[in-house]
């Protein structure tokens, strides 16, 4: 028995590690996208894979996003497991027809005869001073599609474990990678092929006064806010939603039952977002747990501004703190 030593890995390296692990384990996994081959992806998520697995399993496509998603659909009906990269989430819109009309429905419309075990990966979110169309967070648009899973990791370990699960899952998964934290920190990782479960939230920190619900790059900011709240004597529970759809509302509800307060934090535009869905479900099932109204800390209903104004748009640690303190201090006025 050889012991596998833990490696210090960033989130994007963890993605790479999961891809190579699964390609080694499962012959049917193939990688496609723009610049994923020799170049190893513009963020280097597929670095070294062409060298190890060859051009038949790691290939550059023509520059055509609808094509990438559409051929992934076709390949997956043939029993391959395509992992397709869309270079930036801002360019994902051309894929929507293939995702919403085909990948997410194939099993249903053939009554189980065919299915689409594919993963579409895309870096998403702001905060890296990228050009226009390179900073969007439109996970809610995809979470609305029946038959599709939407998964977002928030740390190297969760990127590794959740991506393994996404590839192994027999149904289509949109895997959104928060590029702001692609290289933010390293975590000790063991490349043992151990996956993490989909469809569940991860409680990252326990607390009894307030529940902070978030995902993606905002997880780090939320954890920072929770530290400061602690210093102010407020115990915050931090939940990383991780699988946006299907949503594990039970974990959130259990926490809200305990704390009686909830703040939802996301980078995406405010209205009709995932935060709205979570607060609706809390209202439906846990209204009387609440000691204060649910609050949302989010981006605005504006396009993602160009990078000089990015900080106006992005929720900050201070925004989270302010909202959490207001929620904590809320006193119901006698009517």
């Amino acid at each position: 028995m050889t012991t596998i030593l833990p490696l210090q890995k960033t989130l994007v390296e963890a993605v790479n590690l999961a891809l190579s692990h699964e390609m080694r384990r499962d012959e049917s996994v193939v990688i496609l996208g723009e610049d994923v081959g020799v170049n190893g992806g513009v963020f280097r998520a597929t670095e070294g894979l062409r060298e190890e697995f060859g051009v038949r399993r790691v290939f550059d496509t023509p520059l055509a996003e609808a094509l990438i998603a559409g051929i992934a659909v076709g390949m997956s009906t043939q029993g391959l497991k395509p992992v397709a990269e869309i270079q930036f989430m801002g360019f994902i819109f051309a894929t929507v027809e293939h995702i919403a009309c085909h990948a997410s429905r194939m099993r249903n419309r053939t009554r189980g005869r065919l299915h689409c075990p594919l993963v579409i990966r895309a870096p998403y979110g702001g905060g890296i001073h990228a050009p226009e169309h390179h900073s969007e967070s439109t996970e809610a648009m995809f979470a609305h599609i029946p038959g599709l899973r939407v998964v977002i990791p928030s740390s190297p370990k969760r990127a590794y474990g959740l991506l393994l699960s996404a590839i192994r899952n027999p149904d289509p998964v949109l895997f959104l990678e928060p590029k702001r934290i692609y290289r933010a920190s390293k975590q000790a990782l063991i490349d043992d092929g151990e996956s993490l479960p989909l469809d569940v939230c991860f409680t990252l920190r326990e607390g009894s006064d307030i529940t902070l619900v978030t995902w993606g790059a905002m997880v780090n900011d939320t954890l920072k806010a929770a530290d400061q709240l602690q210093q102010n004597g407020i115990g915050a529970e931090v939940i990383d939603v991780a699988t946006i759809k299907p949503l594990d509302i039970e974990t959130i509800l259990c926490s809200v039952e305990k704390t009686g307060r909830c703040v939802i934090i996301h980078e995406a535009a405010r209205s009709f977002g995932v935060g709205a869905e979570i607060s609706a479900q809390i209202a439906e099932r846990g209204l009387f747990y609440l000691k204060a109204p649910i609050a949302r800390v989010t981006g605005y209903d504006t396009p993602m501004p160009y990078y000089k104004n990015e900080d106006h748009y992005m929720p900050s640690v201070q925004d989270i703190l302010d909202s959490a303190e207001q929620t904590f201090d809320f006193v119901r006025k006698a009517s």
Binding site: R56, I71, T77
Partner: peptide, 25 residues
Amino acid sequence: QDLPICVPIATQITHAAGIATAMKI
């Protein structure tokens, strides 16, 4: 292995290219 009847016009052509890619691989 045949795909079902496709209503969104032309999308089946892209799927066929994916199927052909799998065959070629």
